[in-house]
């Protein structure tokens, strides 16, 4: 019997998710035994043309990580969608935009100008910018276009399943691949991690006071963190209550608060807004200026509450930013 074929691809991502697949350690061999990896540009030498040549739907699944920012990523997502029976968004960036989507706070022009002209380590007197086309000595090379905004995978193509995490843990990756191979996939659109918030599996939960009544917020570098006490009891923002579980509470176990990478639960349309409304409602101060004082401890609310989810949030991007091709 021929082994099921799968593809692994990356778009706007840091490479951590590729690492996560490798992190399956010896289990990766087990996976390789059971499937044929037909496409994995990061690790194996297959070409785009090879996949294009395959009949549609000949891959059982593609695990695609990374957000969609460029025309090339868009094109690859569409192509792999055609070739795969299941399109799986792998990791926070593909699921909800991830860290790259924080760029949606700024216009593309501002980003390019900063990166190619203004950043302290850049010397570019000619103000050269990357071109979409460049011809020299009769040869023309092209570069993909950077779209106006960063999108999650499902804002570009139809997605069947989501494996969340920045990066996803080996455990949920293995479970997902196992389910795929055994054909026990849940309903389309499911996020393949338990639909209950992280606090439930966090060992610090019992130490969370019923009334946290925040008087100040501290960031992790501003405080000596207690290794057992709920971070909220220490005045440190932890996104656990607004984040779905599945990671095994690895950040709190490593004495770092949850930053929310698994995204919200299914019931929540906007993880950041939920976290915000919960934290703000629990601030002790009742007067406007005292509240402002407390909130000074959160200098970057978007980066704190929407670290992984800006693209998929209700706001999606800074007001007034244009979309590319109406997208």
């Amino acid at each position: 019997m021929p082994k099921p074929k799968i593809g692994i691809y990356w778009c706007a991502s840091c490479g951590g998710c590729e690492e996560a697949v490798v992190d399956l350690a010896e289990d990766i061999l087990g996976v390789v035994e059971k499937v044929d990896i037909m496409f994995w540009p990061c690790a194996m030498d297959f070409k785009k043309a090879d996949v294009e040549a395959m009949p549609d739907k000949s891959l059982v699944a593609t695990l695609l990580n990374g957000a969609i920012r460029s025309s090339e990523q868009e094109e690859m997502a569409h192509m792999l969608r055609r070739k795969s029976k299941y399109m799986i968004a792998y990791g926070s960036c593909a699921c909800t935009g991830g860290i790259p989507a924080l760029a949606n706070q700024f216009p593309r022009e501002q980003i390019l100008r900063y990166v190619y002209e203004e950043s302290p380590t850049t010397v570019n007197e000619a103000k050269t910018r990357p071109q979409l086309k460049f011809a020299e000595a009769g040869r023309e090379v092209t570069l993909p276009e950077l779209r106006n905004v960063v999108r999650s995978l499902d804002q570009v193509v139809d997605v069947d399943y989501y494996i969340p995490g920045c990066p996803p843990t080996p455990k949920i990756t293995k479970a997902a691949i196992g389910a795929l191979l055994e054909g026990r996939m849940p309903p389309k659109g499911s996020v393949l991690s338990p639909d209950v918030a992280l606090c439930e599996e966090c060992s610090r939960r019992d130490s969370k006071p019923t009334n946290v009544a925040f008087t100040e917020f501290k960031r992790t570098h501003q405080k000596h963190l207690d290794p057992q006490l709920c971070f909220l009891a220490q005045g440190v923002i932890c996104m656990g209550a607004a984040t779905r579980q599945g990671c095994g509470a690895q950040c709190p176990s490593g004495n770092m608060p949850c930053t929310g990478c698994f995204g919200g639960t299914d019931r929540v349309k906007d993880q950041g807004a939920k976290a915000l409304s919960s934290f703000c409602a629990n601030i002790a101060a009742k007067e406007a200026d005292e509240i402002d004082q407390t909130l000074k401890g959160i200098p970057d609310p978007v980066g704190t509450f929407y670290r992984y989810g800006l693209a998929k949030s209700l706001l999606r991007r800074k007001a007034g930013l244009p979309m590319s091709n109406g997208k």
Partner: peptide, 8 residues
């Protein structure tokens, strides 16, 4: 999840 945020 038993986070208790709602209680107070």
């Amino acid at each position: 999840s038993g986070c208790k945020s709602c209680i107070p």
